[in-house]
Design a protein around this nucleic acid. Structure first.
Lengths: 176, 176
DNA sequence: TAGAACGTTTAGTAATTACTAAACGCAGTA
DNA sequence: TACTGCGTTTAGTAATTACTAAACGTTCTA
């Protein structure tokens, strides 16, 4: 039983859509990436539109956030007003880029608010049952430390410019 | 300027709610965890209800998924029909638990579909332009390898039963 | 065996998020 | 200066997700 390439591409796209949704991104985003990832040449927006079935507007905005994340790259050609998009195929690069992106995000703001909570506790300006305040202090501090650990890990990963995943995995395997 | 403990708790809860949302979980889930995390003693469902402002039904279901993830623990006391919940305070433990949870998830199903796509390509049963098939094959293979790397990493982390995050960070810092 | 105190389920609603359709703005071209 | 081809923005809709309210089933108590 043979499969048509077009069918295979479609299945693949479907799969990436689900993965995208699983990670909390719109499934359309996964589809767009899939189409670009399987294309040997950069594609103009219109081509993405026809291949995904989304509208121009949707593709326009989503391809932009993909670009911000470093998962796709936009380029243009002289004497051609179209923009062309192609997928980043070095996933490790993408991950670093995504991690960087996350650092200036809503997440960071929230983490910072935990930091503020902690500072209030450290400064002794919190009123209430003494034992409970102490307990809360300890817990908030532990959470903050956890966040720091995560942050350090992320920074470390970001800095591994040259290493491929294989190497990282190898290193981790030493720990078993 | 002093802050009331109750106010501080509320701010903290608000912060965790946002973090929860950021990671694609309901904000109520973050709130529930926050309340439990700051409580010196295990709390019955009703108490969570009053402290979060959610309804019994919501708390019931969300606390259950938190438990599945290993972020909270349910316990009961002899001669008391209530269930009591407390937060897991070892975040590293929680992470491992979450990673384990993810392995039997929708995500895995999708990853498997990529695997199947690859197998079709390997078996040479895909019809279409030869060069393009070759290109697609290469790309799909690269993605699959990336998934494997991630998987290995996750497995490695899961196996680090005894190590705290600090140690992992230390090891990673060597790589800088 | 009725009633009370629980947690769970269910059916419906509110809120959020992803998307569409269409107007728009800005080049470049005739 | 109008026309065309492009990407973006916007306003509204569809779909999804989080949540509520209330009925329900169990288990314990009187």
């Amino acid at each position: 039983m043979t499969t048509k390439l077009s069918q295979l591409k479609q299945d693949f796209t479907e799969g990436l859509s689900q993965i995208s949704r699983f990670w909390g991104f719109p499934k359309g985003m996964g589809a767009i990436f899939a189409v670009l990832y399987l294309s040997p040449a950069p594609l103009p927006l219109d081509e993405i539109v026809t291949q995904t079935g989304l509208t121009k507007g949707a593709v326009s905005t989503e391809v932009r956030t993909l670009a911000r994340m470093g998962l796709v790259h936009r380029s243009s050609r002289l004497g051609d007003r179209k923009d062309y998009y192609e997928a980043e195929s070095d996933f490790y690069k993408s991950i670093r880029s995504i991690l960087k992106e996350r650092q200036n995000s809503e997440f960071d703001r929230a983490v910072r608010s935990v930091q503020e909570t902690l500072e209030k506790l450290e400064s002794g300006s919190v009123s209430g049952d003494e034992a409970e305040v102490a307990f809360v202090h300890e817990r908030v501090k532990a959470l903050q430390e956890f966040f720091n650990a995560i942050d350090n890990l992320a920074s470390a990963v970001i800095k591994l410019e040259s290493l491929g995943f294989r190497n990282v995995a190898k290193i981790l395997s030493v720990l078993k």
